[in-house]
């Protein structure tokens, strides 16, 4: 599934006739496979859907990778700090996490985007900062048990500082879990971002985005369902591909460790 996505993002931009923006009102709402110049047809403004799809997936993935990077970074740092030092800082950080978990992410993002705007970079940061709790919790629970392990006690007894223990022992031991979680979260963030774009609060036109393509296509559901189908399939390939991948990796890991 991810292979199709890779072709879409990496190869399609180099095909002849790649053009996201040129409008051709005479050739609008073409169905797929009817015109060799527009393999997947054209939208209401006569723009090439294949080209727009390629860019939209690229944008979605870039936003998701950026956001996941931020949230993994923040969540892992929080988890390491809370789990290693425990005490009041643990209580405070995890309470913040609990509160954030209790707020519907999409709603929170809607309010944030409404007040702060939706420039792409800001969107990445906001998505990243609203999705760290999962990492924080996983890392914290691993660290809580790791820090009691005897190799950590031995390192401390040899004079290791908290920073040394975290950097040399705890971080390397939680990293593989963080990577697995991050792979899964890319799918989650793509979902959230496309939901935001769907209601017009995510990626702003004229930049193509999957959510917005579906929103525009919704109006032609009766006459041209492919306008919804094509981006829908792309979203499914991206999220489903990532989910199956991360699940398989997870299963294989749990088999190899037992």
């Amino acid at each position: 599934m991810l292979a199709i996505v890779a072709v879409l993002v990496l190869v399609v931009p180099f095909l002849p006739g790649f053009d996201t923006d040129t409008q051709d009102l005479g050739d609008n709402l073409l169905a797929p496979l009817q015109n060799p110049a527009h393999l997947l047809g054209t939208d209401a403004l006569g723009r090439d859907i294949l080209s727009r799809l390629s860019v939209a997936v690229r944008v979605s993935l870039l936003v998701a990778f950026g956001a996941v990077l931020i949230s993994a970074l923040v969540g892992t740092s929080v988890g390491l700090t809370a789990g290693y030092f425990r005490g009041r800082i643990d209580t405070v950080l995890m309470s913040i996490g609990d509160i954030q978990l209790a707020i519907p992410v999409v709603l929170l993002l809607i309010v944030l985007v409404a007040t702060l705007g939706s420039r792409p970079l800001l969107l990445v940061v906001l998505l990243g900062l609203t999705d760290w709790v999962g990492y924080g919790r996983v890392v914290r629970s691993m660290v809580v048990s790791l820090r009691e392990q005897e190799f950590v006690q031995a390192a401390r007894s040899a004079g290791a500082s908290g920073f040394w223990v975290i950097r040399k022992h705890l971080l390397p031991n939680v990293l593989s879990q963080v990577v697995i979680l991050a792979a899964f979260e890319i799918g989650v963030v793509v979902t959230i971002e496309s939901s935001l774009s769907f209601i017009g609060l995510g990626i702003q036109p004229p930049t193509p985005s999957l959510g917005l393509m579906i929103n525009e296509g919704q109006r032609y559901l009766q006459s041209n369902p492919s306008l919804v189908f094509v981006p829908a399939l792309a979203i499914f390939l991206v999220i489903g591909g990532i989910q199956f991948l991360s699940q398989n990796v997870g299963v294989r890991r749990s088999r190899s460790t037992t």
Partner: peptide, 16 residues
């Protein structure tokens, strides 16, 4: 910490 060192019980947990 240089002058006092531990050896713990669990031979599985005592090494990273």
């Amino acid at each position: 910490r240089r002058r006092v060192q531990p050896v713990f019980q669990n031979p599985y947990g005592s090494l990273d």
